[in-house]
């Protein structure tokens, strides 16, 4: 499919999560990102697709990687950017979240990228504002661009995702990366195993079409890919496991475990990584690790999302 028909088939003005995307939608993003990556490798790093437009980055939760990535993605497409960061909840700032967002909207962005600690916060903006909304992570709900870049990275190394087995390891309960990955992987036909301490794996997550394992050692040999989720100490209330040492003992990826994986298996981690908890330095810097590829690919994925959302808005306007 060429770029134009890809963009005209994409109908979404907002990117709130992968739950609401079809397999075709997801593939359209991955293909668009691949095209941007190819162009960059040919030296065409700066494109003009969003020239004259403004993208607002609204980060109500601390973020370095995702915010930087979105910001650079917008610049690569020649958009201007507004950067807004507020740590903690909007209430502690005195102004409500919605009022803050409306203030930013008044500056005239065509799209806002939102990160917030509350599930559904971007959905609220998509209903209340007249701009495209990209979810850059809403609490423990979804983180669609992270999942898309994970899918992209796996596809880049291992081809079609259908039939591949992917293990998501760690704090499934509090992970928006896990939820978005599960939706995306299942829609593209991959088998998904979620693996972590029983306190951090909701039993009914099987309703999303995944298998549960409490033993990383048992699933290591059969997976094509492990995605090591960060332990979200900041989202947990109380102790979900007895100690970090015990967590690493059961679920940490180390050299020994790495050697028991298939030769061509991949190790992903959405980061920021806690070396020594989720994985050892040997693994992070080892041959199976594609952690830095993920970061690079995140840029083209976010360019693709901004581009497709902008095209959808333009098409909707043209048809109105």
């Amino acid at each position: 499919m060429d770029g134009d028909s890809r963009a005209s088939n994409w109908k979404h003005r907002h990117l709130l999560g992968l739950e609401s995307l079809s397999a075709e939608d997801i593939v359209a993003v991955l293909d668009q990102a691949a095209e941007f990556k190819r162009l960059a490798e040919q030296g065409e790093r700066k494109l003009t697709a969003l020239a004259g437009q403004t993208v607002a980055n609204l980060f109500f939760e601390p973020s370095t990687r995702t915010r930087t990535s979105f910001s650079l993605a917008a610049k690569r497409l020649s958009a201007d950017t507004i950067e807004f960061s507020a740590s903690g909840s909007s209430l502690s700032k005195g102004e409500t979240y919605l009022d803050t967002a409306r203030t930013i909207e008044a500056l005239g962005p065509s799209m806002v990228v939102v990160r917030h600690s509350s599930p559904g916060a971007p959905h609220m903006l998509s209903r209340q504002l007249d701009v495209g909304v990209l979810n850059a992570g809403d609490g423990t709900h979804e983180h669609p661009t992270q999942a898309l870049l994970d899918l992209f990275t796996i596809r880049e190394h291992r081809g079609d995702l259908a039939g591949k087995t992917v293990a998501l390891v760690g704090d499934i309960r509090h992970s928006r990366v896990a939820r978005s990955n599960i939706w995306g992987l299942r829609k593209l036909g991959a088998r998904v195993i979620v693996c972590g301490p029983a306190t951090l794996v909701p039993r009914n997550i099987t309703e999303m079409g995944v298998e549960i394992s409490y033993s990383l050692d048992r699933v290591l040999g059969e997976v094509d890919c492990v995605n090591l989720l960060r332990v979200q100490f900041e989202r947990q209330r109380g102790a979900f496991f007895p100690s970090i040492a015990e967590y690493a003992h059961l679920f940490g990826m180390n050299g020994d475990r790495q050697r028991r994986m298939k030769d061509d298996a991949l190790i992903l981690a959405p980061g920021p990584i806690n070396r020594g908890v989720e994985l050892t330095p040997e693994v992070a810097d080892g041959s199976k690790s594609v952690i830095l590829d993920q970061v690079t690919n995140g840029l083209v994925i976010r360019m693709a999302c901004l581009y497709l959302l902008d095209r959808a808005a333009a098409n909707a306007e043209a048809n109105a």
């Binding site: 739950e19 599930p119 559904g120 809403d138 609490g139 423990t140 709900h141 939820r179 009914n204 997550i205």
Partner: peptide, 18 residues
């Protein structure tokens, strides 16, 4: 129910609400 927002079940798992 501390910190809870909705019934604990499939939908709370999907939405990510406590």
């Amino acid at each position: 129910v501390a910190g809870g927002v909705m019934h604990e079940g499939v939908h709370s798992t999907l939405i990510g609400l406590r």
